[in-house]
């Protein structure tokens, strides 16, 4: 066993018992996750798509510079993120290709994100998952095991903080059915024109639904919207 990884995990577990806020909890988790070689995370509840109750956990760190390019009518290059699976019991790994735009908003570097999802099942609570992503594919398995352990304590601490706080730490995002559908087709690489044909609505309407979803999710680009919606279990992969 790599004792230093275990000690990092235990440092976070001990810290999770003494933090006073979800922000503090998230920062503590992210700090340790980065020491283990990961970059970003999301702790979410796997609830019915688009119907996130106020009481569920939502804790995440999303990068502002994750974006893909748009090239007019040729559409958005999107990438498949991950499929959260409430039926899984064991942590599972996944891979996702992400295209980052350059300063001219043109396709730039391609990153391959390597992620881990830790499913969490507790009777009487919504199924949960902690998704942790990194760039490096060669993360030590012991570091992964440490993040598995930390994720469970993160979710438990977040639940406790959430239940102890009468106000929501994060505003609840509710997408309409059309907004969800449009985002799912964006994630599948479809242009607004193609989505309009699929859904039998006007192209302008598709554009408005996507813009509305971006506004609700608090992001600037279509790909950021897809990333955040996927990690928040608001949409599924088509």
């Amino acid at each position: 066993m790599k004792l230093e990884y275990f000690q990092l995990a235990m440092d976070f577990i001990d810290a999770s018992r003494s933090v006073d806020s979800l922000d503090e909890l998230g920062q503590s988790f992210l700090k340790t996750a980065r020491q283990l070689g990961f970059r970003h995370y999301a702790c979410v509840a796997c609830v019915e798509v688009g119907s996130t109750p106020e009481s569920v956990v939502f804790l995440a760190d999303f990068p502002d510079d994750w974006a893909s390019t748009t090239s007019g009518d040729s559409g958005v290059q999107t990438a498949r993120i991950l499929q959260l699976s409430p039926r899984q019991n064991l942590p599972f790994n996944w891979e996702h290709e992400l295209v980052v735009a350059d300063s001219d908003n043109q396709p730039g570097e391609i990153y391959v994100l390597n992620g881990v999802t830790v499913p969490i099942h507790v009777a009487g609570a919504f199924p949960g998952a902690v998704n942790i992503v990194g760039i490096d594919a060669d993360i030590d398995p012991a570091a992964e095991h440490a993040i598995h352990l930390m994720s469970i304590y993160l979710h438990e601490a977040a639940l406790k903080l959430k239940s102890g706080d009468g106000t929501a730490e994060h505003p609840v995002v509710r997408l309409t059915a059309r907004e969800r559908q449009c985002l799912e087709w964006v994630a599948a690489g479809k242009t607004d024109w193609e989505i309009a044909s699929i859904l039998s609505i006007a192209e302008r309407t598709v554009h408005n639904h996507v813009e509305s979803a971006k506004l609700k999710l608090g992001v600037h680009t279509r790909v950021q919207a897809v990333v955040k919606a996927f990690l928040s279990s608001l949409i599924n992969h088509r």
């Binding site: 995990a9 019991n89 064991l90 942590p91 969490i120 095991h145 598995h148 469970i152």
Partner: peptide, 27 residues
Amino acid sequence: LSRLPVILKAGWHVRPLGLPVPIKGSL
């Protein structure tokens, strides 16, 4: 490992004694 969330839910003080280890297809 999949049972740890249920064990934690009991509210008692649970400390891992080591990292999870793959055993017989599980952790």
